[in-house]
Design a protein around this nucleic acid. Sequence first.
DNA 1: TGCCTATGCCTAGGTTGCCAAGGTATGGAT
DNA 2: ATCCATACCTTGGCAACCTAGGCATAGGCA
Lengths: 110, 110
Amino acid sequence: MDVRGHLDLLLLAVLADAGPVHGYAVITALRDRSDGAFDVPEGTVYPALHRLERAGLVVSRWEQAAPRRRRVYELTREGREARVAKQSEWRRFVDGVQAVLGPAATQVPA
Amino acid sequence: MDVRGHLDLLLLAVLADAGPVHGYAVITALRDRSDGAFDVPEGTVYPALHRLERAGLVVSRWEQAAPRRRRVYELTREGREARVAKQSEWRRFVDGVQAVLGPAATQVPA
DNA sequence: TGCCTATGCCTAGGTTGCCAAGGTATGGAT
DNA sequence: ATCCATACCTTGGCAACCTAGGCATAGGCA
């Protein structure tokens, strides 16, 4: 499934919960946490992380000690704030769609 | 708020509930039903309706009797099926995002 | 030893969806 | 007479995303 304009929120959420994480681990985390629903290709995630860094929402550093060279990303303060903001926006978005779909489409989360 | 790749579902849902409807009324219905959240511009909706018609999900006819000339849209059988399918997809999408965001982000609909 | 897979990073290019910005025309209210 | 709401439409562009590649190392296996 594609991420439909909500990729930034997903990335920020993973980075917020998992702490400093490298790109490849973000991909596997998204796949695992979503039970396979979000199998986001590398060509989507890496440019997105670069975008977030240019926007000042994350910072990255190279980790040399690891078994392999890795670029590790971490949220900035702005990134944490953006995460909160985007999550509110997500909530409003879902509410809006639910409202259009009608009460019959409402779900109760498990 | 923009519709983030779920415009077709929203249009199909409005057409399914409201019966034969013209484009401008679709726009006002989306705005009203979503309590103002989805104020979708005409330049988005009209091409989208044409797309749905080319895809065979809706049919249109001109209504001459109305106070003004209007093109009225209606779902086809394929359109109704697509609505059901896209609604399931929407549900899976929401579940996926909620799973990534974590249990703390879960909401109970009103 | 050689090979294959998983890990881990990256970019170029094309497609698509959506929106901004414009245009046209009529009906009703002031 | 003028303005706003209604009602339709298209062109052009941007941003996001994916496809399709390329590069490199580590570890398992034959």
